[in-house]
Write a protein that binds this DNA or RNA. Structure first.
Lengths: 336, 336
DNA sequence: CTGTTAGCGCATTCAA
DNA sequence: TTGAATGCGCTAACAG
């Protein structure tokens, strides 16, 4: 029932090859016949079949995107960066949630490869051998966004988490704090999470401060875990006077735990977060936080992928975007 | 270079039709030959080409999803519901951001149709004639999520915004308030937005309360607009004693405006929001709000779409999901 | 239960 | 500048 390139050819009194040429903007077509064909296309309401085109040309102008959870404040921001750049380069994206489950991740990679995507963008904390094995069966480029494989074999876009955590901790140290707690990442995030812990440790060490085990708790990046962590800190004989959380949600949870206990942020306890999601500006006091440019990470990762898909030259397959600290009211303006 | 169904057929010593049968789980294959074929598939690392399959079968097991902004707290939650159900029914989704721009929306519909999606899920406040015209050129089913066309011609999944707004307003009325402000929706949302305003008006009217023009301001659903709106209310000679905002972000902005002015929520001013995004639980006081089941709207819309795609019977093409009010601390527990 | 044969709608040589 | 012919990899009758 749908009108095909044949119908247009007949209607315009030319061959299908000619129709194909005008549809694809091939310049080798006489303006008059081009006009004829355009008219026929218009008249028939012809809509090119991208699947047929994909089969013939071996390009689908579609890329696969594997994301842990699109409803996450963090990843949805990343996804927007990805999609914007994809659109800019005429690609569509097939989006899949993985929930970071290995099995599902591997299955999604295969499904997307079956669908003949021109490239793959992968997000997820932990890159195992299994991932690498599956990736290696792909004949299209793959880029990691907001994560890296242990040996940095694959192209990736991240920030320097070690340095970012170091800077955050140092900020607190400079304010005179001796007991700085950390609400850390879950073990399921062995790379970025560990790096942040190392940065925290190093900053303490460089300042000659001891590392107190009881001042480090693992969270799961969500609000409630930050709230819980802070509550337990508050029950310590000697509670911390400052807290560094590895996500903004956890940091906000910590703030509320402090407030619920009748104390004040930043007067009694200073808090610094991580990511700079929009939530950071939607609390009182507004959150001081390490800026991880989520949108840019997504955008740059997608741009990198387009380069690979077009066989363009890329200087460095591992890119680290700059980070900084956005100072708001959950930390004090002057040093103690 | 990639291995095709032919290669597998040769390797297994059968015809390609047989390979196709085992790949597609057709029961009409002798167990022994099935085993042979499976082994060949394994040995060669065969991966079926979904594009070729799509061309031959006229099914892509892919649906197009047009969403205003995936980084929005509201829509990303919807998207998750959509994707989960899509996965459950073996579909993948091509996700596209429209920013609610008419031109882009129409272009996206066409692109997705070119890609031969098996169905289309559309989100966006305003459905114009242009949309309907473009939809009518599609030969695949289309479902609207979290919106409706003016004449309800298309299948859609929403809540009853009129009633929800009525309920929210009435809740405030029951607490004895006489001056209830509304931070309303933008004019770009003529359907759901208007319905909420009508619900507010009706509730006031039914209670014999006058509608004060100065107590109604339009917002754009974002935090800052709620904050600004509340600030201007606060400068009124006679400020409101309660506020109903048509989004949680705006409601939280309103709370902060109240707090920044040295007043207290709910003691001085009660606030009720709309949507019940996760933010509602990440503020102090936690937000009382109208629950719009975003995830379910997405899930039900996708389920509805699968029914159409499978030519299953559907009882009612316009579905309204139930809403309710979640009471938290931005409203008082007892009546005044 | 299995093989043969046609397309699916298009891009892309190759000739003309 | 144009047309004819071929094949992309697979599904789906149909025949056996």
């Amino acid at each position: 029932m749908p009108v095909t390139i044949y119908d247009v050819a007949r209607e315009a009194g030319v061959s299908m090859a000619t129709v194909s040429r005008v549809v694809n903007g091939n310049p080798n077509v006489k303006p008059t016949t081009r006009k004829k064909v355009m008219a026929a296309i218009e008249r028939l309401g012809y809509r090119p079949n991208a699947v047929a085109r994909g089969l013939a040309s071996k390009k689908t102008t579609t890329v696969g995107v594997i994301i842990p959870d699109i409803s996450s404040l963090f990843y949805s921001e990343l996804a927007r960066g990805i999609e914007d750049i994809a659109t800019m380069y005429k690609y569509n994206i097939i989006l899949c949630n993985s929930d970071q489950r290995l099995e599902k991740e591997l299955q999604l990679i295969n499904t997307l490869l079956e669908k003949q995507v021109d490239g793959l963008l992968f997000m997820g904390a932990d890159i195992k051998e299994d991932h690498l094995d599956t990736f290696s069966t792909a004949s299209v480029p793959i880029v990691l966004a907001a994560t890296r494989d242990p040996d940095s074999l694959l192209p990736s876009v991240t920030i320097n988490h070690f340095q970012a955590a170091y800077d955050a901790t140092q900020t607190l140290i400079e304010r005179g704090h001796k007991r700085i707690a950390m609400i850390a990442s879950p073990p399921s995030d062995p790379l970025a999470g560990l790096l942040r812990f190392e940065g925290y440790k190093q900053a303490l060490h460089d300042a000659g401060l001891p590392l107190h085990d009881e001042l480090v708790t693992g969270g799961n990046y969500f609000y409630q875990s930050g709230l819980n962590a802070m509550n337990s800190f508050l029950q310590l004989a000697e509670p911390p006077t400052a807290v560094f959380a590895t996500s903004d949600e956890m940091a906000v949870g910590a703030i509320h735990a402090v407030q619920d206990a009748g104390l004040r942020v930043p007067d009694d306890i200073e808090v610094i977060g991580y990511d700079n999601i929009r939530l950071a500006e939607m609390v009182r006091p507004r959150l001081t936080t390490v800026v991880q440019p989520m949108y840019d990470i997504g955008a740059v990762a997608m741009r990198l992928l387009t380069k690979y898909m077009n066989n363009e030259h890329v200087d460095d397959h591992v890119v680290q975007l700059p980070h900084r600290i956005e100072f708001r009211e959950s930390t004090r303006t002057e040093n103690v």
